[in-house]
Amino acid sequence: MTDARPPAIALMGPTASGKSALALALAERFGGEIVSVDSALVYRGLEIGAAKPDAAERARVAHHMLDLRDPWQTYSAAEFADDGRRAIDAILVRGRLPILVGGTGLYFAALLEGLSPMPAADPAVRAEIAAQAAALGWPALHAQLAAVDPDAAARIGPGDPQRIQRALEVHRLSGVPISEWQRRPPEVPPLPVRVLQLAIAPRERAELHARIAARFDAMVAAGFLDEVRALRALPQLRAHPAPLELPAIRAVGYRQAWEHLDGLGDAAWMRERAIAATRQLAKRQFTWLRGRSQVRWFDPARERAALDAAVEQALAAHPGAPAVGG
């Protein structure tokens, strides 16, 4: 049976792979608007270190899902799925092509497949868990998780505070392990679009590593440390008992810069740790992408013509799709 839903393009891939520049080019060519699928770009004040589109890029193409929360707040994948769906609906009403761009696999999964039903975030419970972590350390809370949900503890490492916190929160709110919630099927209707899923990544891993290092150096040269100093000066972050546990400050680069400004290491120490953390993020992104059977892989530098042809074919297969340059 033919899928009559209008098309959308998803540009996935590891950090520093060139997704943003490609998205801008495709949006201008095919009459699109960009929906960011990035867990750092939802936070205000994370600009240089998050590679957020600047004012000129936003003037060229409409962007959505940016600057939704302050850096001392949290934002869940379920919230992203709801907000992202509304953004896509609005783009379709305008007769434009939704282009989903980013590297946050959980956000993509929430939007494309939906999430299993489970309790919503509870600020009081999260604050209680964060306070316990500050006093005992996250490995101790990971041990607590292992006692109530060994399946989740086996998947979540003791150095992954965000997922430990969420798993404990769900159990404390519901009495049901998060692993059991996750086995339940999603309860969401399908998206109103048919999504062409494209993975964008250099063919050689060494090339990506070089891009990661060059981008971090460019960020520092552009004033990244001043940006982190401005975050540290915000009254809400100065008053926070554990700012390094906030999702915004845990973003790669920001945590390492924050610790550098705390005096834990010099600039070279910060650079080494930030680049290493970004490489680890890219590795996790590759792992997630390889588990998605519908994804088509392209090296944007070497296979741009083939990538453009894939997009053109996906749009041509759907009558009523946005016209080229529309």
Rank of each mutant, 00 (worst) to 15 (best):
L136T: 00
R194G: 07
L261K: 01
A130R: 11
L111P: 04
R29E: 15
E180T: 10
D160E: 13
W269R: 14
L196N: 09
H209G: 03
R296G: 13
G265S: 10
P158R: 11
R94V: 05
V61S: 03
A267Y: 05
F298M: 14
L246R: 08
D89V: 13
L141P: 04
Q165T: 03
R166E: 09
T104Q: 05
P161M: 08
D122N: 09
P158Q: 03
A8C: 04
Y75F: 15
S179W: 04
P202E: 02
D67E: 11
V252M: 10
A50G: 08
D82A: 13
M219H: 12
D308L: 14
P14K: 06
G13N: 04
F108V: 06
V228F: 00
A301G: 15
L173T: 02
V37D: 01
R94Y: 09
V220Y: 04
G159K: 11
A222H: 07
A152C: 00
L136A: 00
A242T: 14
E169S: 01
D82Q: 08
A8Q: 01
D67P: 04
E47W: 09
E303N: 07
V195E: 11
S174Q: 05
Q132Y: 00
H318S: 11
L208M: 06
F286S: 08
P117K: 00
T278K: 12
P139K: 12
V228A: 00
G114L: 03
V220P: 01
Y254G: 01
R211A: 09
W269Q: 13
R255H: 10
A50M: 10
W258V: 04
P139I: 13
R155P: 01
P14Q: 06
R194T: 09
G103D: 12
V148T: 02
Q313D: 10
T287S: 13
D122V: 02
L208S: 00
V125R: 11
W72H: 09
G223L: 05
D82W: 04
R155A: 07
R279M: 06
L92W: 03
A267E: 14
A239R: 12
S116P: 00
A201H: 06
G49I: 02
S179P: 06
P6Q: 08
A222I: 10
A131Q: 08
P247G: 13
L106Y: 02
T74H: 13
A218V: 06
P139G: 10
R284G: 15
Q182L: 04
T2F: 08
R85K: 07
P190L: 08
L22G: 05
